[in-house]
Write a protein that binds this DNA or RNA. Structure first.
Length: 274
DNA sequence: CGGGCGGCCTGGAGGC
DNA sequence: TGCCTCCAGGCCGCCC
């Protein structure tokens, strides 16, 4: 489901129901996520804590708690984090549930269990192994073509793989890499070693514009994405190339093509992207 | 060293 | 209808 826009949409949707709330209990029904959930630690450290705010880093949602702790949630491919009303029945694949003082519950569901839940001291997040090697945040000040070009110096390989490499740029997954490259008019297979400064800049601007528009549209709902209160996104209707193999390019009318880079589907218009 | 690929899991879609 | 294969929005680690 979730790339940067979906996590940002989720974050915003959860603020009203979570900010200032106290966690009163934690249940772990299934600890087998990408890394085992430390249920004992969660139950020992979370009850009684107040949620001070929600942040996002890359595709991680950061729930800051009083006492200097941060609850880190990653949705993987199929994770969902939603607020359920008091008394709502447990749902399938609901692996971790946080009971709130308001009576609502924050529940984490994840059929494929590629997600992640962990607790870390807020002031040590940056050096946590999950965060230490993350690259540039594309929606922060200073993100531009020259920073992208600098990160790519000495590297080889297709620009699409570079865009999706979280050590270089964070938050851009398969959907938005495809869409941003289309918006920039750059062929996804083009080597990072053969991109002019002008095109690096165009790409940076396309990444920002694509992510910002997707956030404004509430994210992309292909199968099952919904924000923290159940609203689906609308950006899927604006997708220019993703999952549109054989359909008409919205710009030139030619056929959208599919290829594979690093084992992932790549969609592009061979006429518009060079 | 950096890039590419398989594997982790389950469910849904499509083919036969 | 039912079974089988393939594929999926992320990420890590192994291999070359």
């Amino acid at each position: 489901m979730p790339e940067l826009p979906e996590i940002e949409v989720l974050r915003r949707s959860l603020v009203p129901g979570l900010a200032g709330q106290r966690i009163v209990a934690v249940e772990v029904a299934n600890r087998a996520l990408r890394e085992p959930v430390d249920g004992r630690r969660l139950r020992r450290l979370l009850p009684g804590r107040r949620i001070e705010g929600l942040r996002r880093r890359a595709k991680y949602l950061l729930i800051d708690l009083d006492g200097g702790l941060t609850l880190v949630v990653h949705l993987g491919m199929s994770g969902r984090l939603t607020l359920a009303p008091r008394g709502a029945p447990r749902e399938p694949h609901e692996h971790v549930t946080f009971q709130l003082a308001s009576g609502r519950r924050l529940r984490f569901r994840d059929p494929r269990r590629f997600g992640l839940i962990l607790l870390a001291p807020t002031d040590r997040l940056a050096s946590d192994p999950h965060f230490a090697r993350l690259g540039i945040e594309p929606l922060e000040d200073g993100f531009d073509g020259s920073r992208l070009a600098a990160a790519a110096r000495g590297r080889r390989g297709p620009i699409k793989s570079f865009l999706m490499d979280s050590r270089m740029v964070v938050g851009v997954g398969n959907i938005y890499a495809n869409e941003a490259l289309f918006a920039a008019g750059i062929h996804p297979g083009r080597s990072v070693a053969r991109l002019s400064a002008t095109r690096w800049q165009r790409l940076a601007e396309a990444v920002v514009a694509t992510l910002a528009r997707a956030i404004a549209e509430g994210g992309t709902t292909l199968n099952d994405f919904a924000d923290g209160v159940g609203n689906p996104g609308e950006f899927q209707v604006a997708l220019a190339v993703y999952e549109r193999e054989g359909e008409a390019c919205r710009r030139c009318g030619g056929r959208v093509r599919r290829a594979v880079h690093a084992g992932r589907s790549t969609y592009y218009c061979p006429a518009c992207q060079r």
